[in-house]
């Protein structure tokens, strides 16, 4: 049983990926690997301006496929972004949002980020923040998107202590950076970009067993990577269960 908190529907703009033929094809692949729920956003959200339409398509796909749990995209630099939040929450009944600050040209220290977090907190939505989508060294030369600086999240988490924040695609850095976020509020992390031999176990030491969630970053990454990274660590079964599904379910239950 696995709850994958980091899956994206649609097609990555820069190449095709195995399983991106359709949402159904991707769902079939994930189910075959034991995924029981996947929290999904849409690749169109990275570069499209009409995010209301992207979120509506995402919601429609999720109505057809029970594996998916939709996380809509909101860009707080766009006009009427609060209405996008409202539509995600009230119209599509989404449990949360997935933010792409670097693709949407703002930083987490800007006032627009605080306004968005305030709105999400008011609505008790989960906020996922994707720090990057791919290795900065291999990006398209005309579309170089630097990683999001996660440090300002600490201040945001402190200002809205009940707000559930999930950091996606966190590269393992100095443990102090992760600890600062954990101590600031209800911040969790997925393991999709945690690297190094035994890296997941080290990351759990830094973040705490309750704050680490299974995220694959599929279909951009091979789904097996997240699973084998856990297997490599030889974790206690109880800890593995936490990472694979219990922590994610606890985040949702905390509404």
């Amino acid at each position: 049983m696995t709850v994958d908190v980091n899956v994206t529907l649609g097609r990555w703009p820069f190449r095709r990926t195995p399983g991106d033929e359709s949402g159904a094809a991707l769902a079939q692949r994930l189910r075959a690997r034991g995924v029981t729920q996947a929290w999904v956003s849409h690749f169109d959200a990275l570069l499209h301006t009409d995010l209301a339409a992207v979120n509506a398509r995402l919601a429609e796909e999720c109505r057809r496929e029970p594996l998916w749990l939709p996380f809509g995209a909101v860009n707080p630099t766009l006009p009427a972004w609060r209405d996008d939040v409202r539509r995600c929450h009230e119209g599509h009944r989404m449990p949360g949002l997935r933010l792409f600050p670097n693709y949407h040209s703002y930083t987490l220290s800007q006032p627009v980020a605080a306004e968005l977090f305030e709105e999400a907190a008011r609505r008790n939505l989960v906020v996922q923040v994707a720090l990057l989508m791919e290795d900065e060294r291999t990006q398209h030369p005309l579309v170089r998107v630097p990683a999001v600086d996660a440090a300002p999240l600490a201040d945001l988490a402190r200002r809205w202590p009940g707000l559930r924040v999930i950091v996606l695609n966190q590269r393992p850095g100095p443990p102090g950076g992760v600890r600062a976020l954990v101590e600031a509020g209800a911040v969790s992390f997925d393991i999709s970009m945690v690297e190094g031999t035994g890296g997941v176990a080290k990351f759990v030491e830094a973040a705490g067993a309750e704050r680490v969630l299974f995220g694959s970053h599929a279909p951009l990454y091979y789904w097996d990577a997240a699973s084998l990274k856990i297997q490599e660590c030889g974790l206690a079964p109880e800890l593995e269960e936490r990472i694979r599904h219990r922590n994610a379910r606890a985040v949702l239950r905390a509404a």
Partner: peptide, 20 residues
């Protein structure tokens, strides 16, 4: 190959186990 210890054996093994 993995490039361990800078990389996870698992993340790298997935490139083959997960390939079509």
């Amino acid at each position: 190959g993995s490039d361990a210890g800078g990389r996870s054996y698992g993340s790298q093994l997935a490139k083959v186990t997960g390939a079509d």
